[in-house]
């Protein structure tokens, strides 16, 4: 459990971090380190340089601006878990945070790190999709903003270029009801399947439902089929049953020693149904 030699550079501003990224080949960004450090210690990855961005204070913090919740990429899961602002503005994020790892992990692991790592079993990608988060990415030529729906490109891969850094995440802050249900892998605690759902309803009629699913497939996705079947319809148990039964249609689910594809597919359907039931009371 000893990493291969690497150089360590601590950045104190986003500019400095970007500069370091540009001037070093084969560099990796170190934030909370909860995915990177195990891989380093197992020598599964051997970058020449680690650029530590955990000391950049501007990447950390939660604020509300123009009705949106703005979360710095270096904000820890624990900070989100304990934020009253998040609890009020985004019940879905507040539901996800305490279900990540354990308290120690949540104190170190970061929101942005988890999104940028894009682990197929990560929790945040499902939520980011469900709230249609906007991800702000800084590079040599300024910043660009990418919607979650375009951010994740594959297993462990995103649109972030090697010389770019995810700096902040913007989330709608209207307090839309939301919930995250997670089936934990008994060994790792990662999501076998995780379902992040937001829903609005008024006088028995569904407004908008959004559903992000993680764990089931190499990359998290929006269960659009289910959303379309629900939006604007009158709430009924039958409708939710019917809609959720299609949640896994066409999916090519992951398969491992814990959960074959058929089981993940079952979990997607069951958990989508249960999350909808909790939010829509049916």
């Amino acid at each position: 459990m000893h990493p291969a030699p690497f150089a360590y550079k601590a950045a104190h501003s986003v500019e400095e971090a970007l500069q370091l990224l540009r001037s070093h080949e084969d560099a990796k960004i170190l934030a909370g380190g909860h995915s990177l450090i195990p891989a380093l210690k197992l020598r599964l990855t051997q970058p020449a340089v680690l650029i530590d961005i955990s000391k950049i204070s501007s990447l950390r913090g939660i604020r509300r601006e123009n009705g949106k919740l703005i979360i710095g990429s270096g904000t820890t899961h624990r900070e989100i878990e304990q934020s009253h602002l998040v609890a009020e503005a985004s019940p879905l994020l507040a539901s996800v945070a305490p279900q990540i790892g354990d308290v120690q992990v949540r104190h170190r692991g970061t929101f942005g790190g988890s999104l940028a790592h894009a682990d197929p079993a990560g929790d945040w990608p499902a939520a980011a999709l469900a709230v249609d988060a906007e991800l702000v990415i800084a590079g040599a030529h300024g910043t660009r903003t990418v919607h979650a729906s375009e951010f994740f490109t594959g297993m462990l891969t995103t649109v972030i270029e090697p010389d770019e850094i995810l700096t902040e995440i913007k989330v709608p802050g209207e307090g839309t009801p939301g919930i995250y249900l997670k089936h934990r892998n008994a060994a790792s605690g990662y999501a076998t399947v995780g379902v992040a759902v937001t829903a609005t309803h008024d006088h028995g009629r569904i407004g908008t439902v959004t559903i992000g699913v993680t764990g089931a497939t190499p990359v998290a996705f929006r269960a659009s089929i289910v959303e379309h079947a629900l939006n604007g319809h009158a709430v009924s148990a039958h409708l939710l049953d019917e809609a959720a039964s299609h949640a896994a249609d066409g999916l090519e689910c992951l398969s491992d020693i814990h959960a074959p594809a058929a089981y993940r597919s079952q979990l997607v359907k069951v958990m989508v149904r249960r999350a909808l039931g909790k939010l829509l009371h049916a």
Binding site: N185, A186, A187
Partner: peptide
């Protein structure tokens, strides 16, 4: 050995 780490070998935790 596919269960070669605590990521895949499930020991009991106090929480469960």
């Amino acid at each position: 050995l596919l269960s070669g780490s605590l990521m895949d070998y499930a020991i009991p935790k106090a929480s469960v």
